[in-house]
Design a protein around this nucleic acid. Sequence first.
DNA 1: GAAACTCCATTGAGCCTTCAACTATTCCGG
DNA 2: CCGGAATAGTTGAAGGCTCAATGGAGTTTC
Lengths: 159, 159
Amino acid sequence: MDTQDRWASEHEQTLRSFLIATHLLLDRLDRDLQRQAEIPLAYYQVLACLSEASQCTLRMSDLAAHLHGSRSRLSHAVARLEERGWVQRVACPTDKRGAYAVLTAQGRAAFQAAAPGLFESVRQHLFDQLSAEQAGHLRTISELLAAHLCRHEELDPAD
Amino acid sequence: MDTQDRWASEHEQTLRSFLIATHLLLDRLDRDLQRQAEIPLAYYQVLACLSEASQCTLRMSDLAAHLHGSRSRLSHAVARLEERGWVQRVACPTDKRGAYAVLTAQGRAAFQAAAPGLFESVRQHLFDQLSAEQAGHLRTISELLAAHLCRHEELDPAD
DNA sequence: GAAACTCCATTGAGCCTTCAACTATTCCGG
DNA sequence: CCGGAATAGTTGAAGGCTCAATGGAGTTTC
């Protein structure tokens, strides 16, 4: 087996483990959250983002950008969250195309009720499995990859 | 800020980066593969698994287990792949409940056509962004997490 | 050997996401 | 100011996933 092949097979194995681990972990977190709080992880993230914004309010576009997701997806998500009374859409006075998403009191309550269970899952399935050093590595790696992918999306609007 | 808080906020940041990075990366790989080869990453993994099996054949259950996914999901996936003529179901002679999934010649061809593009994406968006040391860490971490989550699923059939 | 259990695999409903229009507004060059 | 281009956001169809329910086939027990 020459050097090229060794490289490839090593990376292939890493990729395989990475795909399995991330799928299993994301599924588990999503499932736990779904069972305990009846919200998908993706919607929890919307609530989390809004809860940190000033006035618990964000323009739809900004919210989508913070979540690194598409406008379309956010639009659907907010529609669902609005049905539950957790978020409200408010028209933007200065730009009639625009809309604000506002976290309601109920939305904040739902978010706060869901958080402890999620953190417990994360602790159990992620951080309890890693040494402090490994958690540090994971953070570094995640930040590197996220930065690259964000950069790449800006530059490559192959859409 | 006391020690507890520091711990929590550090981990929260790590989690955030991790979720963003994995979502962006999985989306990008899936999208690239979809554009270049018109298959979702999940279906590619099915083909990959079959292509490595002896006779390119695997029991549905075993295939699901290798992929760490549910039987239901695999059943749907194989149904789609069968429509395309890439996989064929074959009844198991010894156990009439059972079914084999067999990779067809067309399926193998589609898999081989898709692989280079995927590896290129993986190289560009994952390994080119990491040092050799970091790739090693990622592998270790992934394997740890995957092992834990597999163990956990066996032990905790909270279903 | 029949009832009770378990196991393999499939099915359909419901939800989430993506993709590709589409509407409505705002911006900008001339 | 007008017409074209860019921007904000929504919508509906299509596809994939999960969940719960089902059917059919082996297995166990007495």
